[in-house]
Design a protein around this nucleic acid. Structure first.
Lengths: 101, 101
DNA sequence: CGGATGTGCAACCCTGTAGTTGCACTGAAT
DNA sequence: ATTCAGTGCAACTACAGGGTTGCACATCCG
């Protein structure tokens, strides 16, 4: 899932879909200097990571962002951040204790 | 930077450093089924992404987490999330308007 | 000093994957 | 029915990156 976010193109794709709403692979490919299939691969990767869903409408497929997906990443980030903050706090407390009045 | 977080090993490494405090590359390598150099490469990648710093003490180098680094990732996530939420809100409003009482 | 321990650098496989091209299939329009 | 736009699948190339090994350099301890 972080692997899906690792590629800059995929982040851009996600960004565009988030701000412009559902689009088709062909429409997106027109905005990037790469082939349609390349874009499709990226979209598939993002969908596999649970960040997108593709909905078929006639002969086209509109991809749109799934809101909850990013939450997991955010959760992990804050967990590690918290652990590190706890260590920082502990160090600061110990420092205060040993140098206190 | 997301690329740095993409590898599971690197996330584990970050995790351990966040919860156990500064460690050397050799000490970390002892806990992983890979060579020391492999671990060093990961640590270097994390340091290049601004998530770690290595501090030399005599002949060893202790790596420790840099708190602010994760903030950037969190910021990006929340930005994209917000944009998507805005679109959702706009859609819901429009839907309410067109089907309202 | 000499040996042990920890680090740094470089060259080298090997797998994964981003990107391409080509072709077949399906839905819509004339 | 024919044509056109959009999609899907598969084979192929090429490059990045994870991992290894080998050796040289620095530092601590006897």
């Amino acid at each position: 899932m972080f692997a899906a976010l690792a590629d800059p193109t995929r982040r851009q794709l996600l960004d565009q879909l988030a701000s412009e709403g559902p689009l088709t692979a062909t429409a997106l490919a027109a905005r990037y200097p790469m082939s349609r299939q390349a874009v499709v691969k990226h979209l598939t990767a993002l969908a596999a990571a649970g960040l997108l869903v593709g909905e078929r409408q006639g002969r086209e497929v509109r991809y749109q962002v799934v809101g909850g997906g990013l939450g997991q990443a955010a959760t992990w980030l804050s967990e590690v951040g918290d652990r590190w903050d706890q260590r920082l706090d502990a160090l600061q407390r110990r420092f205060k204790d040993s140098s206190g009045p």
